[in-house]
């Protein structure tokens, strides 16, 4: 069933000169089991959009249905919704507050009303999932490194065992290694837990190789919606709104323009390398080994 979003609009500071339409008539669906990348320029409404999905923000107009029920309907249990739709905020490490990591991760399950042993079990499971080894469990969350803090914070949401997990720019401010670790972690979670995942990012590289579907947002609207290959074929539209296709797309496009008959829809370095190598014979003999300007 998943989430169904119907004609959502959201206005910040309505009624003043600073009134901004953050979201403009968005309609889409997030079916169970998909791994979706939500991409958009800073200020395109991504963060506002994801905060509506678990009822933290109420739409100015329009409806959101979770498993067929209107989440803004009378008497709808928002707490249960938030347990099912987990949201990891940008810089989630800023929400850590307990004396030790394990207790902090237990905060979510505790709010769900679980007893001590159940929440401890969930917290340990979540910490194992994010790959934070046992020696850190009793440490203060403030003594961890940046990447470890972020894992602990993600575990804090995972411990609620949501069906849908939304991650708002989980790699922001991390170094390349930390970035790869977190993204690898997200992919592993998807495979192990059979979750629906919505990964918010402004980097095409981040999402290109992982997701099944990409939503591109611009100025509060969904501009493109499709598989990564479909979306990245619209290079000029993406560039017009300040985004870019993955670098591989550009290299392959330039190679094709230079006369090499390669496919231009390669997304990852590995895929591109294989594609180029498969055309080794097409490179004119005169150019082989020689460098040309």
């Amino acid at each position: 069933m998943g989430l169904k979003i119907e004609d959502i609009t959201y206005t910040y500071e309505s009624g003043t000169a600073m009134s901004v339409n953050a979201l403009n008539h968005i309609t889409t669906e997030i079916p169970d089991g998909q791994f979706i990348g939500l991409i958009g320029h800073t200020g395109s409404g991504k963060s506002t959009f994801v905060q509506m999905l678990n009822g933290l923000l109420k739409a100015s107009s329009g409806h959101i249905y979770y498993n067929g029920e209107d989440i803004d309907g009378d008497g709808y249990d928002k707490k249960a919704l938030r347990a099912n739709v987990g949201l990891v905020f940008q810089y989630p490490e800023n929400q850590l507050f307990e004396a030790d990591v394990l207790t902090d991760v237990e905060f979510g399950p505790k709010n769900l009303g679980l007893n001590e042993s159940a929440r401890k079990a969930r917290a340990e499971k979540a910490l194992n999932l994010v790959g934070l080894s046992e020696k850190y469990w009793k440490a203060s969350p403030f003594d961890l490194s940046g990447g470890q803090k972020r894992r602990a914070a993600i575990a804090g949401v995972l411990a609620m065992e949501p069906k849908i997990l939304i991650l708002d720019e989980p790699t922001a401010g991390l170094d390349p290694r930390g970035r790869d670790e977190i993204l690898g972690l997200v992919r592993d979670m998807k495979n192990q837990l059979d979750m629906t995942i919505l990964l918010v990012s402004h980097s095409m590289e981040d999402v290109a190789e992982y997701v099944d579907r990409i939503l591109v947002m611009n100025a509060g609207q969904i501009m493109l919606d499709g598989t990564p290959r479909e979306v990245f074929s619209h290079v000029s539209e993406l560039e017009a709104v300040g985004l870019a296709a993955p670098q591989m797309t550009y290299i392959m496009r330039d190679l094709a323009a230079a006369g090499l008959p390669v496919r231009t829809d390669c997304l990852t370095v590995e895929e591109a390398a294989a594609e180029i190598l498969s055309h080794r014979d097409a490179i004119p003999a005169a150019e082989k080994g020689g460098s040309h300007a």
Binding site: R82, F89, P92, Q95, G108, M160
Partner: peptide, 9 residues
């Protein structure tokens, strides 16, 4: 909001 997402009330 972040704590509410973790079920805080």
């Amino acid at each position: 909001k972040a704590q509410m997402a973790r079920g805080a009330d």
